[in-house]
C-alpha cells in the first residue's frame, strides 16, 4: 500500500517513516485502513504530514 512509508521487518516488526512526504498521504491512509490488526494510528499535524503509532509502534 505504502512501501516507502511502512515495511515489515521480519514477521512481526513494522518499520515506518514518521514524517512521510505529503504525496504519500493517500497511500498512508489506505495502508492504515488495511492493517489487519488495526495497529496504525495516523495523525496529521497542522504544519507537516506525520504519523504516529504511539506505544503500538513496532507491532503490525
Amino acid at each position: 500500500m505504502a512501501p516507502d512509508v511502512f515495511k515489515l521487518h521480519g514477521e512481526e516488526a513494522l518499520w515506518y517513516d514518521p514524517a512521510p512526504d505529503e504525496m504519500q498521504r493517500e497511500h498512508v491512509l489506505r495502508a492504515a485502513a488495511a492493517c489487519p490488526v488495526q495497529a496504525i494510528q495516523v495523525e496529521w499535524p497542522r504544519a507537516a504530514s506525520r504519523e504516529n503509532t504511539g506505544e503500538h509502534r513496532g507491532i503490525a
Partner: peptide, 17 residues
C-alpha cells in the same frame, strides 16, 4: 534501525505534537 540503512533521514525522527 531505519536511519543507518538509509531508509529514513535523521530529521524525520522529530517527535510529533
Amino acid at each position: 534501525k531505519t536511519v543507518p540503512i538509509g531508509w529514513i533521514p535523521p530529521e524525520h525522527t522529530q517527535l510529533p505534537r
